[in-house]
């Protein structure tokens, strides 16, 4: 059963999301639009990663050896220059998307494993990840036109 590997993958992705949100907020400190909500959603991502630990511990003994590299770095630090803010938001959308997709996969696995606790965790956390993604998408769409057509 490979579930533990995907739980770890998701946990890492949530941690990456939290640190990417904070890094983007800090790098673009002159953009008020991103500050408070990045702090809020980074907090959610941290909580998700923490909440996953119990399930990682539960399923790790049942897992075969880790397959080859599952984790992909989607965010390699904030950029500078004219499109930096837009491009960094774009990266955050990708990072949040990978979390969102991973929650979907873990949710499917939780049902197969008949793990009601994990199913409940998925429902709670994926809702927040989805809201983070919706916020980032809104911000990206609101910023894109001016950045690409006017500036």
């Amino acid at each position: 059963m490979h579930l533990a590997h995907y739980l770890t993958l998701l946990q890492t992705a949530e941690r990456d999301l939290a640190s990417a949100l904070r890094a983007v907020a800090e790098a673009h400190h002159e953009e008020p639009a991103v500050q408070d909500t990045a702090r809020l959603t980074a907090g959610w991502a941290d909580e998700h990663a923490e909440r996953l630990q119990a399930f990682v511990d539960r399923y790790a003994p049942l897992a075969p050896d880790a397959p080859e590299e599952l984790h992909v770095d989607l965010f390699r630090g904030p950029r500078t220059g004219g499109l930096a803010y837009l491009r960094d938001l774009h990266d955050l959308v990708l990072q949040a998307t990978t979390c969102d997709v991973s929650w979907t996969l873990v949710g499917q696995a939780a049902k197969g494993a008949r793990d009601e606790e994990l199913t409940a965790a998925v429902r709670a956390c994926d809702g927040e990840t989805g809201r983070t993604l919706a916020w980032l998408t809104t911000l990206l769409k609101t910023s894109a036109t001016q950045a690409l057509v006017v500036a």
Partner: peptide
């Protein structure tokens, strides 16, 4: 909108 994030529905 999302009351906490402002994301549009």
């Amino acid at each position: 909108q999302d009351l906490q994030t402002g994301a549009t529905v």
